[in-house]
Design a protein around this nucleic acid. Structure first.
Lengths: 205, 205, 205, 205
DNA sequence: GATGAATGAGGCTTCATTCAT
DNA sequence: GATGAATGAAGCCTCATTCAT
């Protein structure tokens, strides 16, 4: 094997290990929360020794940071994909289904809350989270303005609408935890109704 | 003093102590999260010894449970008050402002998330939280049906609408943490817009 | 018991506990060195639980700091006592015996070296140690100048002499570790010879 | 290349590697102390992998032992060199300057203390150190006796003087750590004064 | 009622050492 | 020879909880 290929292979194995740890951590945080999940638990779940995790992450904290960053990158990629769509409004309304699905997954919702809770006390996590959110919100504003050009003149209005759309999805995660038995179809209808009005309505005079 | 009055006084002092602890705990959980807040910290903040707290609460866990129950009682009282209002729609739209204020308070939002996170791992907390939410949602459904009688025939639709209204406020709490600089007025407008559409719109055929 | 006496008793018990820990730590550091002595070992040796030590000392580091400070206070007290003596030269020459005894005690020598080694890497320990040394050296300079007024005009000469006297005793500690079988009487004679010459000799022109 | 030369070259490379490691270790021990210096740190500083160090040294402990042995050999070589000098007294007094320089180098002083501290807990290191010291002291005794034949009759007196001379230099190392700002010239003068008196003075009756 | 000293399990992290490649 | 991934014991420290006073 050439020197180059060796390096690549090493980098690849390295990346695989990191993912292995992140997956294990995701599962543990989800199940027990950030503080209650022990490194021993994570290491067992990742199938490697405790000490070895420290070859890949400086800290327990660094694990959650990497987790957040990875989710952020995922989200950014999705936003980029959506930007390409032809009929934006249709595309967005269609996305509602997907957004609902994602936020109404118990495990994902729990993780989201867990990460938020951690961010409440950890500046680094909060920063990553906010940066990621800023990115998503920028796209959302662009899309709102594109769909309803009448709002273009009032950045504040656009901002308000975008934030409330975001709040809708964030809120679904909380609903999922507090009231997991809601009727999915009915909520989807109501969600679309609300979003359509937020996107279409003329600015308040 | 009679035996009776003594007992009452004792019960009263007892209750005062409990509140003192709950307030201190609220502050500590808010600032550091449930797991990171130590009993020592809470006791100091409450102005009494660690050991003494155990006269009033069996557990650290029991503190958070009591906290959640107390918040739940507060909420129930508010719902009862609102039930009395004449013009329900106006009353609700007016309430939006208050709901926004409450959910956009950083500290309250942080506590809400913290409690949710804890509920994720603690069945007792989760049960209390869900019971409280069920209560609130029942009222919300009643109100939705009262405001828009056309929906009355479809309990599912009512349920969807009610859940999405709740999600809106829940979501604002998350928004507050992730994007604390949103424009309050613009968000209030958008919020009212969304809620009005959720309350008014005819059911989808 | 009065409130006052209770407080005093508590403070006294507190102080006793601290000493208990310091004694245990002295013994452990002496035997195993600062880094190799574990908190578990110290706690066992002190007859209390690990956790309890942390009621009295913030850190393992704080223990060594307190140790150094306590030794420093002891030394300062001795210096103050010596200052009172009538015939300073005789007093000092007499003290040589005591100084030799102290520095030629294996265990004490080992502890001294151990503390110095720790100071090499720990700024706080080094500072305490240096402050204590400065104090002792000041006294030594005063004494040198008092015994040999002819040196008074040259502070540098006084400083040189004082430092070398100090070095003699410091060096004995190292001798004790490297060559524990030296002849005590012969070394005492040589020590006195050297010190007398350092105190008496006229300044080099 | 012949089989023989290959072997020699291998042995040579081997020796070079060992020195490389010893130099790196010297630097690390100096900076962080024996226990705090990690093998990872040493390996990095030596420019080779951790595992590779274990080809050359059985142990971390073996490294410090080799270090001490190497310093001991160095010292022995120097003593041999001095033995050749014509005017011994002058030669020794001249050496004082060099001895002061060596012992007043912060880094060297720190290492000396570090090694002593380790010797306190490690029999092998202590043995090596003592053997090396015995060698040096033997020379010193010879020199003292040669310079001052009147002492020749009393081995104990010679021993006392030699030990105190050694203590002077050892002590300077400690002075250097505790009071690094001493006046070099003044200390040199005082040092010479003390040593001259130790070498010249008649035995106490 | 009230205190806070005391416990000890358990958490995160570091590190010497090994070994497959 | 040479690497560095991998292990796991052990260290420091925190903290909920108990209990004598």
């Amino acid at each position: 094997m050439s020197r180059e290929t060796e390096k690549e292979a090493a980098a690849h194995r390295n990346e695989r290990r990191r993912l292995q740890i992140l997956d294990a951590a995701t599962e543990c945080f989800r199940r027990r929360g950030f503080h209650a999940a022990s490194m021993a638990e994570i290491s067992k779940s990742a199938g490697m020794s405790v000490g070895h995790i420290y070859h890949y992450f400086e800290n327990k904290e660094a694990i959650i940071a990497a987790l957040v960053e990875s989710k952020a990158r995922e989200l950014a990629d999705k936003m980029d994909a959506m930007r390409q769509e032809q009929d934006l409004l249709t595309a967005m309304i269609d996305k509602v289904d997907e957004g609902l699905a994602k936020n109404s997954d118990q495990a994902l919702a729990a993780l989201k809350i867990e990460v938020l809770a951690e961010a409440t006390r950890n500046a680094r996590t909060l920063d990553t989270l906010r940066a990621s959110d800023r990115l998503a919100l920028d796209k959302m504003r662009e899309n709102v303005a594109a769909v309803n050009p009448a709002l273009g003149a009032s950045p504040k209005t656009v901002d308000g609408r975008a934030n409330v759309v975001a709040a809708l999805f964030d809120g679904i995660a909380i609903r999922t935890l507090l009231n997991p038995d809601f009727d999915r179809e009915a909520v989807l209808d109501a969600l679309r109704l609300a979003i359509r009005s937020l996107l279409h309505a003329a600015p308040t005079p």
